[in-house]
């Protein structure tokens, strides 16, 4: 039994697909740029910033893509409360929701201030992707369905493993951004990308230790 669970997990992971890079991010549905007074001021401020450090298509694609990427992490985390019995998984999921929701706000503001299209992620649910192309680490429909169906410790194991995969994808997106000519000159993009990379790497290590504890306990006779 236990043996099978472990093997099944390995098989699921072996089938995980890693999609395209940040520079070729998923198309997003544009929303109209806001036009009220305060955003006019914000746009003016962004223009002043951008005159000094021009942003590039890669920066825009990164910010747009990462919103969709984060949105999926939030969808995954919202599955946790009903499916887990572990307090530490609940805490982890709550942290991810809190952190990534705030980061989405930063990215949306940056894009709106530059009058770039921002996808609406508020209505996103488990079976909806931000476009069809996959960004690094994004869960496939099959992976998401398996996560949704899992309960208890099985959910915990899948959640951790898939969130590790998801976070690793975000780090890949940052790495690709920094390797692109002219990218990340903008201080908001630089700071956000560098911080996201550090925060998620720290969180991966934490999740790996949590996952190891589960797998070890499960294997004990």
């Amino acid at each position: 039994m236990l043996m099978h669970a472990s093997l099944a997990l390995l098989l699921v992971l072996a089938g995980a697909t890693i999609g395209c890079g940040a520079g070729r991010s998923a198309p997003v549905a544009p929303t109209p740029a806001p036009t009220d007074e305060s955003s006019a001021a914000a746009i003016a401020r962004a223009r002043a910033d951008s005159a000094r450090y021009p942003y590039t298509a890669a920066d825009i694609a990164f910010m747009q893509g990462m919103i969709g990427h984060h949105a999926q992490a939030i969808v995954m985390s919202h599955l946790a409360p009903e499916r887990t019995e572990s307090a530490s998984i609940r805490t982890l999921a709550a942290r991810i929701i809190n952190a990534q929701r705030d980061e989405i706000a930063i990215m949306e503001r940056w894009l709106r201030d530059r009058q770039q299209p921002v996808a609406d992620t508020s209505a996103m649910h488990a079976h909806q992707h931000m476009g069809h192309a996959m960004m690094p680490g994004m869960l496939t429909d099959a992976q998401m369905a398996e996560l949704e169906a899992a309960r208890g410790e099985e959910f915990d194991r899948r959640f951790l493993r898939l969130m590790i995969q998801h976070h690793e994808g975000a780090i890949t997106m940052v790495t690709e951004l920094f390797a692109t000519d002219g990218a990340a000159q903008d201080q908001t993009v630089f700071r956000f990308a560098a911080d996201a990379q550090v925060d998620q790497r720290t969180e991966i290590a934490r999740m790996q230790r949590m996952l190891a504890a589960l797998l070890f306990a499960q294997a004990e006779p």
Binding site: M3, L10, I204, Q208, R209, L211, A219, E220, P221
Partner: peptide, 20 residues
């Protein structure tokens, strides 16, 4: 090494992996 931490793999876990 898992999550930056060196861990001794428990016997039951090693038995599983050995089987594979």
């Amino acid at each position: 090494t898992i999550g930056g931490e060196e861990m001794v793999l428990p016997n039951g876990f090693v038995t599983q992996l050995m089987g594979q």
